[in-house]
């Protein structure tokens, strides 16, 4: 029997650890086995199961862009047993990875369009993959606008990249923090993400909006986008239901007739309308 055991992870070396925010880290991972490295490809939007041996597995998106070869990155917040175990690993340590799983953002279909990224808190990682993918193929897209918010200045992730995007003439970058989350020298916006989207009022014409954030942010951002003229097929998001297997068997992420891990995690709002909103 030559078929691979789906649950057997690839062994990865943690090549680099970046502290993003309190409790939030980014790991850059390299395959230990060259054959596995050579055979591995993924696309923007896909995810994987990351494991700390001794603790278990957790589901995160692949936060790096497929245009950056030779490694993958994940960003996670330390919240439980697995993320705690991962967080204690240092550069050079071994961890596990299974993937890539799930569907992808239709980057090809978006050629020639404006891209509007709206993210909140720890939901920037799934979008960072798409942002870098788009910026690395910048000529394929028209205006690129990024609206990113976190609770406090301290909670903003990818700080050096936010600065890089801010300084790029071909990106319109708006950063915001929740009221009370600002520091004395904060120069960005102050306000919740939906409010800031309304204030910035990006044009819906020939634009795709990619929205990632906590359920509450998504809930209040969708109506704002509708008011700005975005129709459901112009809006995309990724869902992050709890998963164990990642391959449509364990039953955990089943919502309506769909499996978030197989039919998603990327959905247009038009597709989301087909499944019960109370279950994601």
């Amino acid at each position: 029997m030559s078929e691979r055991n789906t649950y057997l992870p690839y062994l990865m070396t943690i090549d680099k650890v970046i502290k993003e925010a309190p409790g939030v880290k980014t790991f850059r991972l390299k395959f230990q086995n060259e054959e596995e490295a050579a055979g591995f490809t993924f696309q923007a939007g896909q995810f994987g199961e990351y494991s700390a041996f001794g603790e278990g597995e957790s589901t995160f998106c692949i936060a790096s862009s497929p245009t950056r070869k030779g490694y993958i990155e994940c960003t996670f917040r330390e919240t439980g047993r697995v993320t705690g175990g991962l967080s204690s690993l240092e550069e050079g340590s071994t961890m596990g990875f299974r993937g890539p799983y799930g569907n992808t953002f239709p980057m090809e279909e978006w050629k020639g369009k404006n891209l509007l990224f709206i993210a909140g808190g720890i939901a920037l990682p799934p979008m960072r993959c798409v942002i870098w993918n788009a910026l690395d193929l910048r000529e394929n897209f028209k205006d690129v606008t990024i609206i990113y918010g976190a609770k406090t200045v301290n909670d903003l992730v990818y700080k050096s990249e936010l600065k890089e995007w801010e300084e790029r003439p071909d990106v319109r970058m708006i950063t915001t923090v929740d009221p009370g989350g600002e520091t004395p020298d904060w120069k960005g916006e102050i306000g919740f993400v939906p409010t800031i989207v309304e204030k910035v009022a990006p044009s819906a014409e020939n634009t795709i909006a990619i929205v990632c954030g906590p359920p509450i942010m998504i809930k209040f951002t969708f109506p704002v986008l509708a008011k700005l003229g975005f129709t459901d097929e112009m809006i995309y998001t990724t869902l992050e239901n709890r998963m164990k297997c990642g391959v449509g068997k364990c039953g955990r992420c089943n919502v309506g007739k769909l499996y978030i891990c197989k039919d998603g995690p990327v959905f247009s709002k038009e597709q989301l309308n087909l499944i019960p909103a109370e279950e994601y």
């Binding site: 041996f53 001794g54 278990g56 597995e57 164990k244 297997c245 068997k249 364990c250 039953g251 955990r252």
Partner: peptide, 14 residues
């Protein structure tokens, strides 16, 4: 057929 995936650890082995 719904299942969970858990870790069983004994020292350096798991």
């Amino acid at each position: 057929a719904c299942f969970d995936i858990q870790e069983d650890v004994h020292g350096s082995k798991g």
